[in-house]
Each structure stands twice: as structure tokens, then as C-alpha cells.
């Protein structure tokens, strides 16, 4: 059912990563992404995997949950791995394996080189670590609203250029706030129309699209009504944009945020150093 879709997949908790300032998390996540893309050799990739595993432990989110989060990208991962294996050619080396298919071989002979295998493994690790770490820092341990606050704060300098940062952040907050409500409402309206004989599951694509009209119209009507109500309620509570507003909770950096930032800088520097020396001499 629609209700089962949880947006952002935030898991409330009390771990060190949960407690970090969302701005720090964003910055650290960006640094980590840079590290992922700079990694060139086997030691770097081992370090990435190890650090990702450490972060999972620190966040106290179950490994199963995180692996489940990777399921939707499994297909993409497999596909890129196959492409990499077969299409990376380094003809200076003898191939590891070559296909012998009669007639077809005249056109193309699938060949696997050592470099292709390495590239496939490295890219897969890159994508996996990227997804795992961004979700640990951003979606799993940070509520969407806090994240919006962080983006607003980090983009605050843009206000000098007359970019309405506050208004964008407010819009995002309200959108996030209303998503669960609208999902619930869609469910309700679909049930009401099913009770009147609407069939959303059978028939041709055109027929199914048409069956959605009785759901979409009421949904839009109610969404506009809600928007209007909310706007009035906000005005009645003296809202007039970001001007002169104070905040109950001011985001504050703590020692752990600075430590996390410094560690991440060190990690990034380490990746650069290892790239330069390439200890085991297995690299891209």
C-alpha cells in the first residue's frame, strides 16, 4: 500500500552520527564523496570499505537495513560491472579469457582483461560506498526537516545576492511536512472510488490512466484547500517571511563536529598520499 512508502527513511536514534550537527554532516559527506572519486588503487578502496563499515557501526543502524537500501541499485551495479568487464580493453596485456562463438566471433569476440575486472570491482565498490555513506550521514540519521535547516544555514551567504534562501527552505519544509498527509489522502480517495467501482489494476494503460482521474481531481482540490488553510494559519501567526525571525533551536557546532571534520580531512589527505605511492601496485 501507499502508506508503506517512507520518505527519506529517517531512523530516529541517539548515536554519535545522529547527534552531529546536520551542517557538519553535509560537509563531511561531501568530503567523503570527493575521497570516493579520488580513490585510485586497491589500498584506497580497502580503506573506503573499512571506513564505510566503521560508519555503519557508529550509526547503530543494522547492517541488514543498509544492505536492503542497496537493493534498488543492484541492477545498475550489475549492469555497470558487466559493461566494465567486457568493454575495458588494455591490449598491452594478454587477455584473461576470450569467448569462442562460431560465426558471431567474426563480428565481436567478448574478451576479459585483468584491467576490466579491476575496474568493474572498483566501480561497484565506489557506487556501493557512495550510497551507503550518503544514506548513513544524510537520510538515515538526519530528519528531512533538519537537513532543510542545514541547507538554509549553509546557503545563507547567498542571501547577499538577494536569493530568497529562507523562502526556498520554508517551501521544502512544508512540502516534506505534507507528503505523508497527501499519501494518506490518496489512499483514502482511492478506497472511496474503489467502493464506487473504480478499477486501478486491470485494463489497458489508457484505461488505467483514465481510472486515475477520479483520484487526481479530488487530490488536487484538497491539496489546494490545505495550502490555502495553511497560508492563512501562518499569516495569523504573524509569519511574514524570514525577516526578523528568530529560532528556538539554533544549529550549533560541537566538539564532535570539529573532530569529524578533521578526521575526514585527514582521511581525504590519506587517500591522496596512498594514490601517489600506490603501495600494492594494483590501480585503475
Amino acid at each position: 500500500m501507499l502508506k508503506d512508502i517512507t520518505l527519506g527513511q529517517y531512523f530516529p536514534g541517539n548515536s554519535v552520527i545522529h547527534k552531529m550537527d546536520p551542517r557538519a554532516k553535509l560537509i563531511v559527506a561531501i568530503l567523503y564523496i570527493v575521497a570516493i572519486f579520488c580513490a585510485q588503487n586497491v589500498v584506497c578502496f580497502a580503506a573506503l570499505l573499512l571506513s564505510a563499515f566503521l560508519l555503519i557501526l557508529l550509526s547503530r543502524i543494522s547492517v541488514i537495513t543498509i544492505l536492503r537500501g542497496l537493493k534498488p541499485i543492484m541492477f545498475v551495479l550489475l549492469f555497470t560491472a558487466i559493461i566494465n568487464v567486457f568493454l575495458t580493453g588494455d591490449t598491452t596485456e594478454p587477455p584473461l579469457w576470450q569467448a569462442e562463438i562460431p560465426i558471431f566471433s567474426l563480428v565481436w569476440r567478448p574478451t576479459i582483461y585483468r584491467a576490466g575486472v579491476i575496474r568493474a570491482i572498483f566501480t561497484s565498490i565506489r557506487v556501493m560506498v557512495l550510497i551507503m555513506v550518503t544514506s548513513i550521514f544524510l537520510t538515515y540519521t538526519t530528519s528531512p526537516i533538519t537537513l532543510t535547516d542545514a541547507i538554509e544555514e549553509l546557503l545563507a551567504p547567498l542571501k547577499l545576492l538577494h536569493i530568497p534562501v529562507h523562502d526556498f527552505a520554508m517551501m521544502m519544509t512544508i512540502a516534506l511536512l505534507f507528503i505523508p498527509t497527501l499519501i494518506e489522502e490518496t489512499d483514502k480517495i482511492m478506497n472511496a472510488q474503489k467502493a464506487r467501482g473504480a478499477d486501478f489494476a486491470n485494463g489497458s494503460l489508457v484505461k488505467r490512466a483514465k481510472a486515475l482521474v477520479p483520484v487526481l481531481i479530488p487530490l488536487f482540490v484538497s491539496a489546494f484547500k490545505r495550502a490555502e488553510d495553511l497560508a492563512v494559519a501562518m499569516e495569523c501567526r504573524c509569519y511574514r517571511g524570514g525577516k526578523g525571525r528568530t529560532k528556538l533551536h539554533k544549529l550549533q557546532y560541537h566538539a564532535r563536529d570539529i573532530v569529524a571534520f578533521l578526521l575526514m580531512c585527514a582521511f581525504l589527505a590519506g587517500i591522496f598520499v596512498v594514490n601517489y605511492y600506490n603501495p600494492l601496485e594494483i590501480s585503475l
Binding site: S143, L177, R226, L248
Partner: peptide
Amino acid sequence: PDNQLVATIVEEDVAFGPENLGLPR
């Protein structure tokens, strides 16, 4: 009630009006 709450945490919603008034923390 659903159309007049503006935050995802109770105390932040209650703070919304006073925040607009620009009161100190």
C-alpha cells in the same frame, strides 16, 4: 488540525509564532 501545524516536532510548531515575533531565544 492538520492544516495549521507547520513543523514536524511539537515544540518547534509551538515556537513558530513567537519566532515570527523575533523574540530572543
